[in-house]
């Protein structure tokens, strides 16, 4: 009969419509602004309303999530910043749209390059958030950030991030990527141990 298909289709929309209310009853007052209900609402069992109430609640980003890169520094004994970056230039060579600029200086006395960047720039109006710089940095010195709330009113003044703007402490890195961090630390410790063992063997 003509129209059956239409009615079947409307049945589906009706089901969706009713489900949102059933969900309301099921969650009664605990539906929003709580991590458990957010996880449930956004998971494979989601029914009914699927909306994230941004900005009050935010969808958690997975560990691998990448936005703009940042430079990792460790805090030294006197509170000074010890950059992990050795200004080896690999990230700027691998960057596909070539948006990383690094200034490496030479030691005035020895004439040798200083293993720390004098300046470091990333033009975030070019950066494609690809993550290759973080992937190929041999010193785990540049990592992809999770902070995506970067909207601004002006770009000319501050969309070329300088070293200052790019720097974040290693503790921050640990907090956003705990698993990667633990893995890298373990690898580093292993390497150190191997070096130590070799030195002893000599």
């Amino acid at each position: 009969m003509y129209g059956i298909g239409l009615i079947k289709g409307l049945g589906v929309t009706l089901k969706h419509f009713i489900e949102t209310y059933l969900d309301d009853i099921r969650w009664l007052g605990r539906r929003y602004y709580r991590d458990e209900s957010l996880a449930e609402r956004q998971g494979p069992h989601a029914r009914g309303i699927f909306t994230v109430q941004y900005p009050e609640e935010k969808l958690p980003v997975p560990e691998e999530f990448r936005c703009i890169p940042f430079l990792v520094y460790e805090v030294g004994e006197d509170g000074e910043r010890l950059y992990r970056c050795t200004s080896c230039g690999i990230c700027s060579k691998v960057c596909p749209p070539q948006c990383i600029w690094i200034v490496r200086s030479n030691d005035p006395e020895t004439g040798r390059p200083i293993p720390s960047p004098t300046e470091f720039f990333i033009d975030i109006d070019i950066c494609m958030n690809c993550g290759l710089c973080a992937e190929y940095c041999p010193f785990d010195a540049i990592k992809m950030d999770h902070d995506y709330e970067l909207a601004s009113y002006d770009r000319l003044a501050d969309h070329i991030y300088n070293k200052e703007r790019l720097s974040k402490p290693v503790t921050y890195y640990e907090s956003i990527r705990p698993m990667n961090f633990a893995f890298e630390e373990a690898a580093r410790a292993e390497k150190e141990a191997a070096k130590e063992a070799r030195r002893k063997a000599k």
Binding site: Y54, C67, E149, A151
Partner: peptide, 20 residues
């Protein structure tokens, strides 16, 4: 009026821009 960096900005980043 507003710039939203990112490539692409995630939907939440765009919402952030709209709030701005």
């Amino acid at each position: 009026d507003v710039y939203v960096p990112g490539c692409p900005p995630t939907p939440q980043a765009l919402l952030n821009g709209l709030i701005k």
